[in-house]
Amino acid sequence: MPSMTRTIPTPSNGLVKDMEDADDQRGPERDETDAAFHKLVRRLVADGDARAARAGRRARRTLAQMGVAR
């Protein structure tokens, strides 16, 4: 009689929990990291603008204003 083998591992914590664990092991999704990065950048820009305003200046926005040669 031919033997049958199992090709899919048996879920240990329930199928949904195993899927969540596998997803967590892959790390953060691209959209999650993008949102966090953009939130950080917006906060840094607001802080820089506030510091520049207190010093009586404006934050530089273009490469030319920053003195960067292309």
Rank of each mutant, 00 (worst) to 15 (best):
H38Y: 14
H38A: 03
H38L: 14
H38W: 11
H38F: 14
K39D: 14
K39L: 13
K39H: 09
K39S: 12
K39I: 04
K39Q: 14
K39E: 14
L40R: 14
L40I: 05
V41K: 09
V41M: 13
R42S: 05
R42N: 11
R42I: 00
R42Q: 10
R42E: 14
R42G: 03
R42P: 02
R42F: 05
R43K: 12
L44H: 02
L44Y: 06
L44E: 08
L44K: 04
V45L: 09
V45R: 13
V45N: 07
A46S: 08
A46Q: 13
A46E: 09
D47H: 07
D47A: 10
D47F: 11
G48K: 12
A50G: 09
A50S: 12
A50E: 12
R51T: 05
R51S: 03
R51G: 01
R51H: 02
A52K: 08
A52H: 07
A52D: 05
A52I: 02
A53V: 00
A53Y: 06
A53L: 13
R54Q: 09
R54H: 08
A55C: 01
G56F: 03
G56Q: 02
G56E: 00
R57P: 00
R57S: 00
R57W: 01
R57F: 03
R57G: 04
R58T: 14
R58N: 13
R58D: 15
R58P: 02
R58W: 07
A59P: 06
R60F: 07
R60E: 11
R60Q: 15
R60P: 02
R61N: 05
R61V: 04
R61F: 00
T62M: 07
T62C: 03
T62H: 01
T62V: 08
L63A: 11
L63E: 11
L63R: 14
L63Y: 09
A64I: 09
A64D: 15
Q65V: 04
Q65R: 06
Q65A: 08
Q65N: 07
Q65K: 08
M66R: 12
M66P: 00
G67K: 01
G67M: 05
G67S: 03
G67D: 05
G67C: 03
G67Q: 03
G67F: 06
G67N: 04
G67Y: 00
V68K: 15
V68L: 15
V68F: 05
V68D: 05
A69L: 14
A69M: 11
R70D: 10
R70W: 09
R70V: 09
